[in-house]
């Protein structure tokens, strides 16, 4: 049975994570060979996943680490061992 585009979209996320079984992966791969739409959907979804993982997209507020460790220092100085 040939799978259709909607069927592929359902598995895009699992496919990216390598979380589809071999048979389904083979079917999807075959579909992707001939379907430009699904190839573009897959590529763009992958790119979004890669881009959001970039550390520079989400940066801690300036001085965050210093303030955190200064507060921890005060806590540690006051405390018995946990």
């Amino acid at each position: 049975m040939r799978i259709d585009c909607k069927h592929v979209w359902q598995y895009i996320s699992a496919y990216i994570d390598g979380d589809v079984d071999a048979a389904l992966r083979a079917e999807i791969d075959k579909h992707l060979e001939t379907c430009e739409i699904c190839s573009a959907v897959l590529d763009s979804t992958r790119n979004v996943v890669v881009l959001v993982a970039d550390d520079r997209v989400f940066e801690l507020p300036a001085g965050f680490g210093n303030r955190l460790h200064a507060r921890l220092d005060r806590e540690l100085a006051l405390s018995e061992s946990p």
């Binding site: 979209w9 359902q10 895009i12 996320s13 699992a14 990216i16 959907v41 763009s44 979804t45 790119n47 979004v48 996943v49 881009l51 959001v52």
Partner: peptide, 16 residues
């Protein structure tokens, strides 16, 4: 995760 990525793709792909 699947839905979130789909929503992000729909929002971002045309801009990116």
């Amino acid at each position: 995760l699947h839905r979130a990525r789909a929503l992000l793709q729909r929002n971002l792909a045309p801009k990116l």
